[in-house]
Design a protein around this nucleic acid. Structure first.
Lengths: 152, 152
DNA sequence: CTTGTTATTGCCATTATGTGCAGTTACTAT
DNA sequence: ATAGTAACTGCACATAATGGCAATAACAAG
């Protein structure tokens, strides 16, 4: 695939190396095509080559994130999920605190806020990494008040 | 302090109990008056009563968060810091990916975005929990391009 | 004050993720 | 093709945070 070639080239240009592990992680991400945990990714990579360690998967995902190839969102439960960017391109992540689902949203919606924060606070927002907590349509909090605390 | 009394009352109304551990955590948060990690908080609580376990501190902070007494932000390094709300009231958190500092910002700035997301996506943003990654004034990324990946 | 109920705690095991290091291997230049 | 160099990996271990559970203790009612 052309986009992968381009990525591999960019890797090498910056002094990184193209290893089988990195190829496999990328391929698995492609195959999954959706959000996946590091462990799910590792499972699939492990099926291809059983000696690949999960720490390598983590490091690879970090690298891909630096390269804006994948983005990572913290799901409601204490686990992170990784998504291959690419065709969809970068977008906002709406993370539902109720069901843990992650929805993509138009990135430009955050632009005005970014401008405000730059002008008023000198803060340069990294919109790519912005993820927004709240409740999706199905999980709307009961009544108008959010400050209701439930007993476990 | 009046605000603490009010909180304790609210606790009891909802069937929670007022324990010395919870009092101590609250008092320590007050004393610190700034962002602190769970471990920093635990250290200070431990000085007051040496048998208090760190898991209790975590659970207490979670509870306080549910009650909107504290808010928690994920700092750049993989650690979370907790802040006592109260006088400052809720606000946006601007988290610098460079130095890890956390800056407060006017909460209303996020309102227009929240409205968009509600109308276009049926997503109810939890502005209290919104924290925004980027770079503070001191840590502005070099040149205009953010996609530069450095070798470790 | 005594007693009963059950939220809470401390302890310890477990999970998810990150790190240090020595051996391995992708790439570069000969 | 060969050798040199430094990025990368696998392993073992470190760390932050969470969960299970029996013992404890806060609160309500008598």
């Amino acid at each position: 695939m052309a986009c992968e070639e381009a990525f591999f080239k960019k890797l090498r240009e910056r002094g990184f190396r193209l290893t089988p592990q990195r190829e496999m992680v990328l391929s698995v991400l492609h195959q999954i095509g959706d959000f996946a945990t590091a462990e799910q990714i590792h499972d699939k990579v492990h099926a291809l080559s059983s000696s690949v360690d999960i720490s390598t998967v983590y490091r690879t995902l970090d690298l891909f994130e630096d390269f804006r190839m994948v983005s990572c969102v913290e799901r409601g439960d204490g686990q992170r999920v990784y998504e291959l960017l690419g065709m969809h391109g970068p977008h906002l992540h709406l993370v539902c605190s109720g069901c843990g689902s992650v929805m993509g949203a138009e990135l430009d919606l955050a632009r005005p806020l970014a401008v405000c924060l730059r002008e008023d606070y000198g803060f340069e927002v990294d919109v790519n990494r912005l993820h927004i907590p709240g409740f999706c349509h199905e999980c709307q909090p009961v009544s108008g008040e959010a400050a209701t605390v439930e007993k476990r």
